[in-house]
Amino acid sequence: MSALSRPGIPSLDRMLSDPGSSPTVLRLTIGSRLRKLRDAAGITPLQASERIRCHYSKISRMECGKVPLKVCDVQDLLELYGADPREADASADLVELSNRSGWWERYGSVVPDWFDKLIGLQEGASVIWTYEVLLVPGLLQTPEYAFAVAREGFPLADRLEIEARVDLRVERQKILSRSEGPRLWALFDSGVLNRHIGSPEVMYRQISHMINLSEHPRITLQIVPEGFVITASTPVTLIRFPVDLPDIVYLENSFDARYLDREKETAHFRALLDPLATTAYSPETTRSKLLDALELYR
């Protein structure tokens, strides 16, 4: 079975009942529903914009989840598209939930706009599949390891800023401890274990942490063998959701990121990454190699 076989999609009600439901994903869900209804009704963005008295480009931004939604706009569009009146009535609660502030907004001083979206997407994910080349995947990092990474990656930052970045990373990891949190499938290059980040003690604690996480029922860890050639030379994260939304691929560099959601794009990265689940060491062998690596830092 493919690493990314799609499970059954639970109802939106289940997602909304989860206190961890993400405003980012709710906006995407509402926008996707509006786009499907508009297409089915044969209505153009220009015609839709005339109904809510806005520039036609706003319709696209609403459908892509890029702008906060207004209850009156959503209800007017649902009526225009011929949606069931009960859906229009229920939309008010959904829109209000989608406009909540995410917990991560309190870290605004260290969270660039392009990274803000990733946090919101991961908050509402059902599967997070990530491949890392140089570092331990962020959702698996210990505070000490994350501090060393931030100190090296942001040499001009003062200690308070670095500590804020570490706190943010620790908060992000809480999705893994939720009863219905996402499944994490983390692959990383074998060189990650030999790349000294911080002191030997930092590496010892980091590898110990990964060994413990390897027993988590929703976390799969696999080491990619040395010398394995993959065209993805930068970190790649593919995110899947518990509602009917397309997969999203996240590609990051030092100063910005790209979010890809077109089927042709996401299919490319699925085809690129899926063989890693077969080529990489099995979870059992990976755990064994982590135990071996631990001895190097005693």
Rank of each mutant, 00 (worst) to 15 (best):
T278Y: 13
S57H: 12
L184A: 05
C54N: 08
L187E: 10
C54D: 06
A41L: 10
S126T: 09
F115L: 14
P19S: 09
S179I: 02
R218K: 13
G124M: 05
K58M: 12
S32K: 11
T286A: 03
A146L: 09
R205F: 12
H209V: 01
F228I: 04
Q47E: 15
A48H: 02
A88N: 05
L121I: 02
L4R: 12
G153T: 04
E180W: 11
L245P: 01
E252D: 09
R262P: 00
L94C: 01
N194K: 12
R35Y: 08
D292Y: 08
G8C: 03
I211L: 03
G124C: 02
E50S: 03
D93W: 11
G31I: 02
D274L: 07
L121Q: 04
R178K: 10
M203S: 01
G31Q: 05
T29R: 13
W185G: 00
E50V: 00
I162P: 00
H209E: 13
P143N: 10
E284V: 12
H268Y: 15
Y81K: 06
P225F: 08
C72S: 15
L156K: 13
R165L: 13
L290K: 03
P137Y: 11
R6Y: 09
L296S: 12
I207H: 03
L97M: 13
F154S: 06
I9C: 14
R270S: 08
A146H: 11
F115S: 06
T285E: 15
F241N: 04
V149E: 07
A277H: 10
I43H: 09
D158P: 04
T44F: 04
I52S: 03
L251N: 06
A164Y: 11
I43A: 08
V25P: 02
E123N: 12
V111F: 11
T130C: 10
T130I: 11
P242T: 07
L193Y: 05
A90E: 15
I128H: 07
S98H: 02
W185F: 09
P10I: 09
V202I: 11
L140A: 05
E295F: 07
F241K: 07
A92P: 00
A164N: 13
A41W: 10
I230V: 11
L156R: 14
A293N: 08
V224F: 06
E163P: 00
A271H: 14
E295V: 10
V110T: 07
F154Q: 09
T29Q: 13
R205P: 00
S101D: 12
S109I: 04
W103Q: 07
Q47L: 08
R159A: 14
L12Y: 11
L291H: 07
E252I: 02
M1I: 00
L245K: 03
L134P: 00
A125T: 01
L160K: 14
D76P: 00
I9K: 14
L187K: 02
S91A: 15
H55G: 10
R270D: 10
V224T: 05
S288A: 13
E63H: 04
L238C: 04
S32N: 15
F147K: 08
A83P: 07
R287H: 12
L251K: 05
Q206F: 03
L221Q: 03
M1P: 01
R183E: 14
S11P: 00
M210F: 05
T231H: 15
T220Q: 15
I30R: 03
E163G: 01
E226R: 13
E252M: 04
R14F: 11
